[in-house]
Nucleic acid binder design. Structure first.
Lengths: 220, 220
DNA sequence: AGCTTAATTTATCGATTGATAATTGTAAAG
DNA sequence: CTTTACAATTATCAATCGATAAATTAAGCT
């Protein structure tokens, strides 16, 4: 008969791999909600283990956060996405819609958006490396494909301008900001992610021709 | 001759109003950098006062944060901005550019962007009230003026659609995201704020006509 | 079953947290 | 120059933080 009537408190033994996974996934949810300043004591309670157990799997809180960050962001950039953007057998509208549909399936989640912002605000070095990744493999590629789709000169003729970069960043930022509105400010959003992407891609494609013209690019 | 050779430590007396202002402004910078979990001890050191002094001016840390939030966001929405957007004697491109130029002069600062995100993540109630303010006084107004500028039916004929709202939110989000890239992820941005706004407004105006057409709106 | 390994817990540490009370010192009033 | 009001300090608190060591117990092996 236990002292606390309602606490049978059966202790469960998991394999180190399984327990480690449980801790990391619990930490993702917990840190997404409470930020990285959330205490390891509260985290342990949230997961359902004792606090010292966390230190059996991670030498310090810093290492746990690194594991969270690695699990969330590293390797979640699917290499197939690059191929989708570059596949010129499809219309650019199709490709952009497809790409952002898949991209949003990953990033438009409260855990992803919130942890991403928390880590950015804490200026963990890994976050500073994510923006260049996006710029190189999404933004730049989109600019290149837009040049091709509108019959504009290639990069060998005219290098990409600030204006073209900013147009693509605006598409990207607008879609990202949708996630911020939903999961940070938690305001009701009218449109579904699908509709938002359709509208954003349309807006970008409608607008990018005019942007190109205004900076003196002409069809070859 | 003081014990610590390099610490003359002359005590300065300020008026309560002045000292309060010093604390709030110091807190804005400090919390923008360290988040609201930054300790009052470190904050006091940052300001150059002792920690208990803060509690002479604010009954709790919560109240200090409220003062920071109030100082940063309340009343910084200039009422003249509404007039700028609605002034139909100017072209819509002019008005949008002018509006976002002034708006960005306020929000595109590390303190503003970072505190705004921190407070959003902490889900302080006041943040949830800011998005509706923006939607009512900027987004909605932009949609209405776009209808007028493109000769589309008024709100009495056809209510604003999700697509039109999302187009305006994308403009807004793209511009906001520029601040996130600069002050949260601290990546070098190619274009100046001015160029970004010009490009974004152009992109929006070029695109919004196509969006309107795609949802079945026709010129009256 | 009994033994053994190691996964998990209890107990505890010094440092730091938000917050309070008592003391000190400055600048204006007389 | 002395007095006095109150701004600002030092000293201190219980609670909570990240982290460690020792004790406990569940599960695989023989």
């Amino acid at each position: 008969m236990p002292e606390d009537a309602a606490t049978p408190k059966k202790r469960k033994r998991y394999s180190p791999e399984e327990r480690r996974r449980m801790i990391v996934e619990g930490a993702i949810e917990f840190f997404a909600e409470n930020g990285f300043d959330g205490s390891t004591h509260q985290l342990a309670k949230y997961i359902g283990v004792t606090q010292p157990l966390i230190y059996q799997y991670f030498p310090s809180k810093e290492d746990l956060i690194e594991a969270v960050y690695s699990e969330l962001f590293q390797g979640r950039w699917n290499d197939e996405w690059d191929g989708i953007l570059a596949d010129r057998s499809r219309s650019l509208e199709d490709r952009l819609t497809d790409f952002y549909q898949r991209y949003c399936a990953v990033i438009h989640a409260p855990d992803w958006i919130r942890v991403f912002l928390y880590s950015g605000l804490k200026e963990m070095d890994i976050t500073q490396r994510y923006a260049p990744l996006v710029e190189e493999r999404a933004i730049r590629r989109i600019c290149i494909e837009a040049r091709d789709a509108f019959g504009l000169p290639g990069l060998d003729k005219v290098p990409l301008s600030h204006e073209e970069f900013e147009a693509a960043w605006m598409l990207h930022g607008g879609i990202f900001y949708y996630g911020v509105r939903r999961f940070v400010y938690r305001v009701p959003v009218e449109a579904s992610t699908e509709k938002l992407i359709n509208a954003s891609v349309k807006l970008y494609l409608e607008g990018v021709g005019g942007v190109a013209k205004s900076i003196g690019l002409s069809v070859s």
